[in-house]
């Protein structure tokens, strides 16, 4: 029996490996080898346009990044600040929309689902360019609408400077980010639809009101989905790049507020061609993402509820 069972199992393993071989090859060639190479580059003075001058410099790049170049730690501070503002807003917004879309009493549910997902289909660069116009302090329709509706002088340099005011810039970027929340909403919606209705029926019989059902059933049952979205959200924010790059070409305007780690990494690696130093910044971004992921996994036992058991 063991011999008979053993043979097909081995063959299955081989077939399994064959099926995932394309992915494995892709992972090795496009992820693992470049990662190893970038780690090696981080110990080199490696400039793309002067390959003849490339040389090993030991820990020089790491020392520069961690103790000599104030831009690196400042950029990390900025992304943490932005994360604290952006993540709760985008999470709260996505969850509220998903709950609304899951409500049986909502008319035209399917239409609303399509409408909320539709912006995700627009290429992000186009979205950012559109928002750049919408938030323009002189001719953007948000300021013009406020002006026409309230009569307040909100256009121009004395008005609401969405993309130039250091106090507003993170709120503006978060607003742009909300436009692309369709995927998160969709995942939340799938999570909500996976909650057994018996739980709500039992709660109704027990006399639980809406908020009680939300905090006692919906949110606990949604914690695995929240956990997943939190990890992908944080890792995504550590790599935050496209919006500041499209709007300001990565200049950090206003007052360096949008010079995030990924933007600084791009400048060093692909504007100045300092691939060695850029590799250090890339690894610091990776370490930051890894740290938050480990913290979330380490604490997940305390707040993530798996109805079917963790395994």
């Amino acid at each position: 029996m063991r011999r008979i069972l053993g043979l097909p199992l081995k063959r299955e393993q081989l077939w399994g490996l064959m099926f995932i071989a394309p992915w494995l090859a892709g992972f090795l060639i496009f992820y693992l080898v470049p990662m190893a190479a970038s780690f090696l580059f981080s110990f080199m003075d490696f400039n793309l346009i002067q390959p003849e001058n490339n040389r090993f410099v030991g820990l020089k790049n790491w020392v520069r990044a961690l103790s000599e170049d104030p831009q690196v730690l400042a950029s990390i501070g900025r992304i943490l600040q932005y994360t604290l503002i952006s993540l709760p807003i985008s999470f709260g917004f996505s969850l509220v929309v998903a709950i609304l879309l899951n409500n049986r009493l909502l008319l035209g549910t399917k239409l609303f689902r399509v409408l909320f997902y539709l912006p995700t289909m627009v290429p992000l660069v186009s979205t950012v360019l559109i928002w750049n116009g919408v938030l323009n302090e002189h001719v953007g329709w948000i300021n013009l609408s406020i002006k026409h509706l309230t009569g307040l002088e909100v256009t121009g340099v004395d008005g609401i400077r969405w993309l130039a005011n250091t106090r507003l810039i993170y709120i503006s970027y978060t607003m742009i980010g909300l436009w692309g929340c369709g995927n998160t909403i969709l995942i939340f919606l799938a999570g909500l639809q996976g909650i057994p209705t018996e739980l709500y029926e039992a709660a109704l019989i027990d006399g639980a009101n809406g908020p009680r059902r939300l905090f006692a059933i919906t949110i606990p049952m949604m914690t695995p989905v929240l956990f997943y979205n939190l990890i992908t959200g944080i890792v995504g924010l550590m790599q935050y790049f496209l919006i500041p790059f499209v709007i300001n070409q990565g200049s950090g305007f206003p007052n360096g507020m949008t010079n995030f780690p990924m933007v600084y990494f791009y400048r060093q690696s692909f504007s100045y061609f300092n691939m060695g130093y850029g590799a250090v910044i890339a690894w610091l971004i990776f370490a930051l993402g890894l740290f938050f992921t480990l913290v979330l996994f380490g604490t997940s036992n305390r707040w993530v509820y798996y109805a079917g058991g963790k395994d």
């Binding site: 300001n248 200049s251 206003p254 100045y272 061609f273």
Partner: peptide, 21 residues
């Protein structure tokens, strides 16, 4: 010297001039 880095720095300067009143 450091053509790209210098370009980036003076572009930042110009960005401030054209955006800060």
């Amino acid at each position: 010297p450091s053509f790209q880095e210098t370009t980036t720095r003076y572009s930042d300067f110009w960005n401030v001039l054209t955006n800060e009143p």
